[in-house]
């Protein structure tokens, strides 16, 4: 049970970062940490102690495997995480080009 609580703590660290940091790159890093904690949580849920990796081979019966469904869900989500991160970073560098800063308070002041 401790591992679930620890991964939830990691999610809280990410949420704290998104709400309190004022730098765009820091916000992107915090969002990445939230994503990582959710991947970890899903992989932890599907684990069965003593289970094997879900790949059939001689000598492994189908009863002693970890759950393949959360793994398939996380597999695609990791790729999406990279693509959305790249898109957030491009928005950040376009804002930097226009305003010369990553500070979102200053971008708010300079709008127009």
């Amino acid at each position: 049970m401790t591992v679930f609580i620890l991964s939830f703590l990691m999610l809280l660290v990410g949420v704290h970062g998104v709400l309190t940091r004022r730098n765009l790159i820091k916000v992107v890093i915090s969002l990445t940490i939230i994503e990582f904690s959710i991947f970890l949580m899903l992989a932890l849920i599907g684990f069965i102690s003593g289970g094997e990796a879900p790949i059939l081979d001689a000598g492994i019966s189908a009863g002693r495997m970890v759950d393949p469904l959360p793994q398939a869900m996380v597999l695609t989500a990791i790729v999406i995480a990279l693509a959305t991160n790249a898109m957030l970073l491009t928005i950040a560098i376009r804002l930097y080009k226009k305003y010369g800063t990553f500070d979102i308070r200053r971008i708010n002041e300079l709008k127009g």
Binding site: A53, I55, L75, T76, I78
Partner: peptide, 12 residues
Amino acid sequence: HLTPGGGFAGGA
């Protein structure tokens, strides 16, 4: 379809 990996990892 035989070993760990697949299209997403190979493409990356």
